[in-house]
Structures are given as C-alpha cells and as structure tokens.
C-alpha cells in the first residue's frame, strides 16, 4: 500500500482492498469509439487487429472483512451506479501487491 493510504483507519478484522472494475459494452451495443480506434490502428499498419473495444476502468480502494465482502460491496456499486445494465457488463478483479500501482 502506498503512503497516502496510511490515513485510512482499518478497523478490527478489516483489511484494505484495491479492486479494478472493468465496465464494457455488451456485445450487441455499438462501440463507435472502439471501431474508430480500430481503423486508426489499421491506418498505422497494425493490420492484424481484429477488434478494439473501449470501456472504462475504475479502481476502488475500500476496507472489507474478506475477499468475498470486498467483492460483494463492489458488486452493489456496479449495480447501483457504476454500470448501466441495458448497455454494459462489468468485471471485478481484486488487485494484489499493488498490481497496477
């Protein structure tokens, strides 16, 4: 954990977790940004690229009692705010050892 996390009070039995949420378009939803980038890559000579998808990556730090607790909390956030179920899917990953620091 980096120095700026040290102000976080970690209560009894709670650990600090960092999670990565990837929000992506459902397959049926158009991704004009992805297809535009795909064309730009082809124009640069990267002509082996079959598909480019553009979504969002959201990193969250939170305190939780366990992996399951951290995932459950984040799942709720995705359902209520971070994704729109009509347009998007999401994937949650727990980051270990400052994987993306």
């Amino acid at each position: 954990m980096s120095n700026d996390d040290q102000h976080l009070q970690i209560a009894n039995g709670q650990g600090l977790y960092e999670l990565l949420i990837e929000v992506r378009h459902k397959d049926k939803i158009a991704d004009p940004e992805g297809s535009t980038i795909n064309k730009a890559l082809a124009a640069l000579g990267f002509d082996n690229v079959n598909k480019v998808s553009v979504g969002k990556a959201i990193r969250i730090k939170l305190t939780a009692a366990s992996d399951d607790d951290a995932l459950a909390q984040t799942e709720k956030m995705c359902q209520r705010l971070l994704s729109n179920p009509v347009l998007e899917d999401y994937k949650i990953t727990i980051l270990r050892d400052n994987a993306y620091a």
């Binding site: 158009a30 004009p32 940004e33 535009t36 729109n84």
Partner: peptide, 8 residues
C-alpha cells in the same frame, strides 16, 4: 437507455 450515436 440512450447509447452513443451511431457514427460517433
């Protein structure tokens, strides 16, 4: 829902 315009 309202998604991005076709054609960006």
């Amino acid at each position: 829902a309202l998604q991005k315009n076709a054609g960006l």
